[in-house]
Amino acid sequence: MSCQYTQATSVDEAVSALVDANGEAHLIAGGVALVILMNEKLVEPSWLIDVSRIEALHGIDRLPDGTVRIGAAVTHREIAESQVISETFPMVPEMAAEIACGRIMNKGTIGGNICLADPQGDPPIAMLALDATMRAAGPDGTRDIPVREFFVDLYTTALREDELLQEILIPPMKDGSVTAFGKYAARKAMDYTSTISIAVRLIRNDSSGNLNEISLGFGGVGQTPMHSEEIERMLTGAAPTDALFEAVREKLFDVLEPIDDHLYSANYKRHVSAVTLRRTIMKAYDGTWEGEGVLIR
């Protein structure tokens, strides 16, 4: 099948191509997800709109109010090496540094990863825990979408057909916030199936030891990268005891919706998610980490 290619140089050019294509175009950034689907003939595009050379989709900046802005076409490698991000959100570069391997990090972008909306993606759950905002650009200008409304179904986001993701905005964390990222993967360098991951941001009450505030992202256990206000409510104000984590584990068996795959059963994934959640919370809480085989940040 014949395919048209638009090497866009501005957001306006990309958006007007999206409008002209009327839902028939695919955006491409690094291509490390989309070209797999093309090689497998799962996607046979008739129009590709390349956003990777659009200046406005590049750059990492700290805005005057402390918000960090990451252009959608910034690569995992640039994020892993970013001083600006690591100063405020160390979880983010540490997470990016563990995405596959150099070949993928050099090409794959945060925007492509988030817009793929793979339930196992790492950046989406980090953004969920950090309450980031997704700034979309369309024919009527830009529109801000809270990350908790962005992942709507399997491989489906809240973006409209004529919109692209322009940038990601991570708001400053409240004083006292700490973060951690936990990931359980069979072969961490290349496997991208059966990865269970957890992102945590919390504030600990130093006098009582209770969890004052907590915000979570769950990877690999549902149709989308997930958050759960129910679980967050159970943890808020509580002391991180065995009893609490046992109750959370039981609740997780209802809340999570993983699928059986060639490596793990759905129930095994629920179990791993609960264990990883506890470990990752404790890593953020007081730096302790128990157990092997889990990559933790």
Binding site: G31, V32, V35, L48, I104, N106, K107
Partner: peptide, 14 residues
């Protein structure tokens, strides 16, 4: 920098 040439389209390498 290393990249996978199987996932690199010709116009991306232009």
């Amino acid at each position: 920098r290393p990249v996978s040439s199987c996932l690199l389209l010709a116009p991306q390498a232009d």
